[in-house]
Design a protein around this nucleic acid. Structure first.
Lengths: 150, 150
DNA sequence: TTAAGTGCAAAAGCTTTGCGGGTAG
DNA sequence: CTACCCGCAAAGCTTTTGCACTTAA
């Protein structure tokens, strides 16, 4: 992500903080910047590792708490995947995922046809629909190469 | 799931065991039956709790190991969701999920239009596509009622 | 000033692993 | 017989929580 877009996203977060009278701390800013730098749907620990390069004393607890705050404010999202750790996604727009059923990795993919599919009416179920994601499930290149090698 | 369908699924698993010379133990059969009984994308611990009703001595380790075996054989699947525990899905056919962004719960939904959407060509990315799922994201009825109440 | 955030350390929750004994085929 | 599974307990990871101190506004 280029610096201009990153700066814009940080400003959006700063605005949310002002609106809600929440302190805009340097830790929070750096945690958001770290998520925006990472394009691999990082776990909290991977975010912590990256932030710690710039701010060596930062606590894991702060990273865990801040990531949940960012999700609650809608600044970032959680990625849906089959694994056992929470993973975050810097993207908040409609996009889709390639999911490897062998290693559980998630990669982004954009496709305008998938963006435009007609969604069913879920109001009868009491479900308030906001948006959608398509998961394309299969085997990633890395895992295929490993299988061939073995 | 009705008993006939359950019986059929158990037979499919028994066949896989015969093909691969794997022991078809009573623990394995009861663990599969428990997953087939549960329609809420249960965690390993929820499966363990249900199996333990019929087989009080069963170990958590056996449940964890057996669920992974069932996934590897393609008898059940893992559900993709935003939470921090692994959750299993008795369904192996194409279907879709309602995902609550508030409580992370997953509910099944079937829709023939979503089943039939055109999938992009991922071969250029080295990704071998097998199938797809659509995640419909929003707020579930339970969470909406809680919000109104507060 | 003060409400909220931060760091630390301990606790809690989920999952995996090593091992001795048991069992399906 | 023999390879594989089972139960147990301990270890390993990820995430949450309580508390004293610090800080943004």
């Amino acid at each position: 992500m280029d610096d201009r877009e990153k700066q814009r996203r940080v400003e959006v977060f700063a605005g949310h903080c002002r609106d809600r009278s929440l302190p805009f701390t340097s830790q929070r800013r750096m945690i958001l910047e770290a998520v925006l730098d990472l394009d691999n749907h990082p776990s909290a620990d991977q975010v912590h590792e990256r932030v710690a390069r710039r701010l060596p004393g930062i606590s894991r607890a702060t990273v865990y708490r801040t990531l949940e705050t960012l999700v609650r404010l809608g600044v970032i999202t959680k990625a849906c995947h089959p694994g056992r750790v929470v993973r975050y996604d810097r993207r908040t727009d409609v996009h889709h995922h390639l999911i490897c059923l062998n290693c559980d990795e998630v990669a982004d993919i954009s496709d305008e046809h998938l963006d435009a599919i007609p969604l069913p009416d879920t109001s009868a179920l009491g479900f308030e629909l906001s948006d959608h994601r398509v998961q394309l499930r299969g085997i990633c290149q890395t895992c295929r190469e490993k299988e061939e090698g073995s």
